[in-house]
């Protein structure tokens, strides 16, 4: 019962927080320069990690599928099969997990420290709104940066898969790419991009919320960082399932 109450309290708090951010953005506007600064900072800091993660996710899946497709004499479908599973499911989720550890933990620690050292209170006491000054730019910056990182990571996963296929599975690049359009439909691509956006939103909302509401000194910052990681991962898995259900329903209706 307590777990349920805590979960509902957290969801309620997060919803109010996000609603307040949208309200601040609507009433006071967005500081575009600050958003771009954050976007660039987050993107540059995380691109190497994301690219590496994407590269190996694609590569590993290609190697895993090699044995199966060879058994059926269907090596030509290796690229399509590996890319399909990477783009539809594994890629966005694994890369988002990695981003939650990097961007999520960093942001909640940064904001949590600002909270417990009263820097956020100081902003308010100086007549400025901390939501507009420091939270909104980070929130939007992380959404856009994470989205681009996730999409970039997916491209890297395709490249990683192809390279591993060429090096270890005895397939040439042209063969690898040939059946990608056959097995990766437009619907899969749209679904994947939609997932990337949802994951980016979840990540940005949770880490800014947990950092902003941290309390209780350095221990409180630690708790905020840990709960950011845990809650983000749980939410990502849940949203992965949810977006899949929604997309399937949507494209079934549109398709019919």
């Amino acid at each position: 019962m307590k777990v349920l109450t805590n979960t509902l309290t957290e969801i309620g708090g997060l919803s109010v927080f996000v609603q307040e951010l949208f309200s601040v953005a609507y009433r006071k506007g967005i500081k575009q320069k600050d958003v771009l600064d954050q976007l660039w900072k987050v993107f540059i800091q995380s691109f190497p990690t994301t690219a590496m993660a994407g590269f190996f996710v694609g590569g590993i899946l290609t190697l895993q599928f090699t044995l199966q497709v060879k058994t059926f004499g269907a090596l030509g479908f290796l690229g399509g099969l590996a890319t399909s599973s990477t783009v539809r499911e594994v890629g966005p989720l694994l890369i988002a997990f990695m981003l939650s550890g990097k961007i999520g933990a960093f942001t909640s620690a940064e904001l949590g420290t600002m909270r417990v050292t009263e820097q956020i209170d100081a902003i308010r006491c100086l007549g400025a709104d901390p939501l507009q000054e420091i939270i909104l730019p980070r929130f939007l910056g992380i959404i856009f940066a994470s989205f681009f990182l996730l999409v970039g990571g997916l491209f890297m996963s395709i490249f990683g898969g192809m390279l591993m296929g060429v090096l270890f599975s005895g397939i040439n690049p042209e063969e690898y790419i040939r059946h990608i359009p056959t097995l990766v439909s437009k619907v899969s691509l749209i679904n994947s991009v939609f997932k990337c956006f949802v994951f980016a939103f979840v990540l940005a909302a949770i880490c800014t919320y947990k950092g902003y509401t941290a309390s209780g000194g350095s221990k409180g910052v630690g708790i905020a960082v840990v709960s950011t990681s845990v809650q983000t991962m749980i939410c990502l898995v849940f949203m992965d399932w949810f977006t899949s259900v929604i997309s399937d329903a949507f494209f079934t209706v549109v398709g019919s």
Partner: peptide, 22 residues
């Protein structure tokens, strides 16, 4: 919230641990 922020512009506060933007 807006009226409070306007009022706070006429108020300065030194925090116990300074709360400087590090």
């Amino acid at each position: 919230k807006q009226e409070l922020l306007s009022l706070l512009k006429n108020m300065g506060m030194l925090f116990q641990k300074n709360a400087l933007f590090d």
